[in-house]
């Protein structure tokens, strides 16, 4: 996993609540056996008419050239539904490094963290302030300081992240590296449990 420290970028606003993983990546695209290339199908059915890439839906934000950036900002309960990690892969492959919302579904949050996509939980008030910004507005996210700033106004909010997960992201460590390092303790546990 790549390490992540700070993100300074414009953002893509998606002021919808309960964005489920079936919208992020519909099930028919889960037939692949590798982690690559899911970005082109990110929000597929919100993005295109009749599943046709030549017919972009003009009112969907990913098709609005005024908006771009490495940060997706979405309404509460983002990533609910299916456990498909393909949702995190699709966001990462499309180019998002962080998702900001007032509330994340648990499994999605873990999947994002395991793929170096930072879920930033902010208050509903702060979220609405971000949405109020224009297309040129930028955000700064500092993982070390656990802070997110609306650059235009300087308004800042602190966000929570598990200390262990923070270390992993800052250094690009995977959980699996850690789990492999305690193999002996796991085997000892198995022996004593039996």
């Amino acid at each position: 996993m790549k390490s992540l420290t700070t993100i300074h970028s414009r953002f893509v606003p998606l002021p919808e609540e309960n964005v489920d993983t079936d919208q992020i990546i519909p099930a028919r695209f889960l037939k692949a056996t590798t982690r690559d290339g899911f970005g082109k199908n990110l929000f597929r059915d919100w993005r295109y008419e009749q599943d046709d890439e030549t017919k972009p839906k003009k009112d969907f934000v990913l098709n609005n050239e005024n908006y771009s950036g490495e940060i997706l900002v979405a309404g509460k309960n983002f990533g609910c539904g299916s456990s498909r990690e393909h949702a995190a892969w699709a966001l990462e492959d499309y180019g998002f490094k962080a998702v900001v919302s007032s509330f994340f579904a648990d499994i999605f949050k873990n999947n994002a963290l395991n793929n170096g996509v930072l879920p930033v939980t902010v208050s509903e008030d702060f979220l609405q302030k971000i949405f109020a910004g224009d297309a040129k507005a930028t955000l700064s996210i500092d993982l070390s300081a656990q802070a997110i700033t609306i650059d235009a106004t300087g308004e800042q909010e602190r966000f929570e992240i598990n200390a262990y997960k923070k270390t992993c992201l800052l250094n690009g460590y995977d959980d699996i590296d850690y789990l492999l390092s305690i193999r002996q303790e796991i085997e000892l546990f198995e022996t004593s449990a039996n």
Binding site: H86, I107, N114, N115, N162, D174, L179, I182
Partner: peptide, 19 residues
């Protein structure tokens, strides 16, 4: 339920990191 990275962790270690 778990994601695919976690499936790999359980394969490798029969464990998961969980709060």
């Amino acid at each position: 339920g778990i994601g695919t990275s976690e499936v790999e962790m359980v394969f490798a270690s029969q464990c998961l990191l969980q709060s």
